[in-house]
Design a protein around this nucleic acid. Structure first.
Lengths: 164, 164
DNA sequence: TAATTTTAGTTTCAAATGAAACTATTTCAA
DNA sequence: TTGAAATAGTTTCATTTGAAACTAAAATTA
């Protein structure tokens, strides 16, 4: 076999070696990481990733409206709406209507939500550290830069695509 | 504003700044890239990402059995089975039963499939280059290394998790 | 060699997701 | 100020996905 690690060798002209193909590698890495974490959130707290993301931004920046949550999490409004609905059922989030603009609702963590948030943050951080532990400080800074650059470019391409 | 680019600043102890959180950043980047590419495959060739992945490995390494396709693409057998079913409908892939082991089927691109593959590869590569163009040669090598390291670690964590 | 277990792949069912239509409210423009 | 357009968020519907059950064939073992 020639490694699941997508390393080195150049590919030939009209072939595509999937395991060296950047979009594919990003997708596999991201899924591996997300699935591991998702399972932990689910097993320990009964939360899905979208639900957890909403909690994370409310814990950090709340109270927020649903659209602000969307901006902060890069989730679309449908996903936010559904995640919020489940969080309210679970009494982790509460909603009140904005008195200035009654279309808006204002979301914040309940006391219970705040406690859960408080429990999850260190776990999430721990997972991240466990992953990042294979990298040196310098590699981490490098990764940060590279991901930022790629994200800017990827967003630009996506946006451009949207107009065309 | 504190940037959608997830840069620099350290986060405080019991908070989690989503846009600096590595699993989240990987997920957003990967989704941005995949969605752009997925749309192109869909619009131009009527293929989904799983379908395209199957075509890619068959084009490069075929003929293969369904499980070999699974290994090469990191797709589970259900996804492979469904992708293959659709590709057969579209007459891009053909299946014949292995005469030595009649549980197995042997998959290969049809002539039509090979032509489609031949058309897509340069496009896929083009997209990758467009993305990678923001990085220098050295940054690319660095990225390659970092992703490989992270993937190894992520897989190890996932595997460990599976036993526990 | 008959019974049991394993392997390859498919089907089924339930949950997750995305796009489009919809409701309620607010803003804008004539 | 009233009618049209825009905005916030939800619901609906069709598609995708994942897990578990299932079928068929092969390998194992007793």
């Amino acid at each position: 076999m020639d490694a699941g690690d997508g390393s080195s060798k150049k590919q030939t002209k009209s072939q595509l070696v999937l395991e060296q193909f950047l979009p594919y590698r990003l997708s596999i890495l991201s899924n591996t990481v997300s699935n591991t974490i998702a399972r932990e959130y689910r097993d320990q707290f009964g939360l899905s990733i979208p639900e957890w993301r909403v909690m994370a931004v409310l814990g950090r920046f709340g109270p927020l409206t649903a659209s602000e949550v969307g901006e902060r999490t890069a989730m679309d409004k449908v996903s936010v709406s559904r995640a919020v609905a489940r969080l309210i059922e679970q009494k982790l989030v509460k909603r009140e209507t904005d008195s200035n603009d009654r279309r808006r609702s204002i979301l914040k963590l309940t006391a219970r939500g705040a406690r859960t948030h408080h429990q999850i943050v260190p776990i999430a951080r721990g997972r991240e550290s466990e992953l990042a532990a294979v990298l040196t400080e310098e590699e981490l800074r490098s990764l940060d830069r590279l991901l930022a650059k790629l994200q800017r470019r990827a967003s630009a391409i996506a946006a451009q695509e949207n107009n065309a």
